[in-house]
């Protein structure tokens, strides 16, 4: 067998192993379920808002007041995906951690790593095989998720998505794969590096909670307009243009907050996905050229991180002499 065939054999086994693994399947179904639920919840949430609007409109009309200030909530089908993206960030990342961990743990646990490493195949090929197998798996999972999302949005939104909207979903799909590979590589790396596998798993979770939940949470709570229930500017009855003028004076604070958020790779993925899908109002209805000119940096960040952790894992796998458990 030539080298390529060997790599392919390893990759195929990784793929098949994961599909037989209960932990992986549990998380996969959990993810699919949550994403479905989140889209439906978002749809009901939107319906609720429309109802509130119509109620308010009715009341104002009855009391004979001007209704111009009230804007009708508009329906953007891609905005239903906010929860789905958040669950991909949270559960998708756990799924990737599970894959990375299992891919190394199953070999260490029953000492098959020594067997593999004494076969005529280079360490790099073993790593590459494992990486490719799991990458294919991540691609398949994301593929299922995004096809599912498209169908659910079509049904819930009662409209067919346009070609341009589908293209935006496709772009999000690509960057989701890149994002998930970061977590796969981190947990693979830690499982190779650390002596104790459970510790590798727990530390992967620590990194996960930092990137996915803590840093974004800090950034969010530091938002000045988030300090008072209902918002500071609302309580002062200030219009948007004036708000921007005032905030311009505090740009250093905003910059600090932004820098903090940027240390989280999840935030980069989120900004990019929210821009593609128009979930963030600033990007809603904007052209892809505009979005790329503003948010390309986020794409670079996650692609670079993905590459870096992957290469780092390969280097450790090839260079670390004793990979198996020592008695």
């Amino acid at each position: 067998m030539n080298n390529f065939a060997k790599i392919f054999t390893v990759a195929k086994k990784e793929y098949a192993d994961a599909l037989k693994n209960r932990v992986f399947l549990v998380f996969l179904f959990f993810l699919l379920f949550l994403i479905g639920v989140s889209i439906i919840v978002a749809a009901f949430d939107f319906q609720g808002k429309v109802a509130v609007y119509q109620n308010a409109l009715l009341k104002l009309r009855q009391s004979g007041q001007v209704v111009e200030n009230l804007s009708e909530p508009q329906f953007f089908p891609l905005q239903l995906l906010r929860g789905a993206i958040e669950y991909l960030e949270i559960i998708g990342a756990i799924l990737a951690i599970v894959l990375g961990y299992l891919s190394i743990a199953k070999e260490k646990g029953n000492n098959t790593l020594q067997l593999i490493l004494t076969r005529p195949i280079s360490r790099f090929s073993v790593y590459l095989g494992k990486f490719l197998g799991n990458a294919l798996l991540i691609i398949s999972v994301s593929g299922i998720v995004f096809v599912g999302i498209t169908l659910v949005v079509d049904i819930v939104g009662k409209t067919m998505l346009t070609g341009s909207q589908l293209y935006r979903i496709f772009l999000t799909f690509i960057f989701t794969i890149i994002y998930l590979l970061i977590f796969f590589s981190i947990s693979t790396l830690l499982s190779i590096l650390l002596k104790s596998l459970p510790n590798a798993l727990i530390i992967s979770f620590v990194i996960w909670i930092l990137f996915v939940l803590i840093i974004p949470q800090i950034g969010d709570t530091m938002d000045p307009d988030n300090q008072v229930p209902g918002g500071l500017f609302n309580s002062l009855h200030m219009v948007k243009a004036d708000q921007t003028a005032i905030l311009a004076k505090f740009s250093h604070y905003e910059k600090m907050r932004d820098n903090l958020e940027q240390t989280s790779l999840t935030k980069h993925y989120e900004r990019l996905a929210f821009a593609f899908l128009g979930i963030k109002d600033t990007y809603n209805g904007k052209s892809l050229e505009f979005i790329f000119s503003e948010r390309a940096i986020d794409g670079w960040w996650i692609s670079l991180a993905s590459l870096l952790f992957g290469v780092f894992g390969a280097v450790i796998f090839v260079k670390k002499r004793v990979l198996w458990k020592e008695e």
């Binding site: 919840v41 009901f44 609720g48 109802a51 509130v52 906010r82 929860g83 974004p216 949470q217 709570t221």
Partner: peptide, 27 residues
Amino acid sequence: ELVSGQTPTALLNPVTMDQVAPDGTFF
């Protein structure tokens, strides 16, 4: 999320944490 209609990140914001769900039969 099912009870309040809030996304995960909104649930982690102490200011809006206990916001109640919008009206509607689903919620």
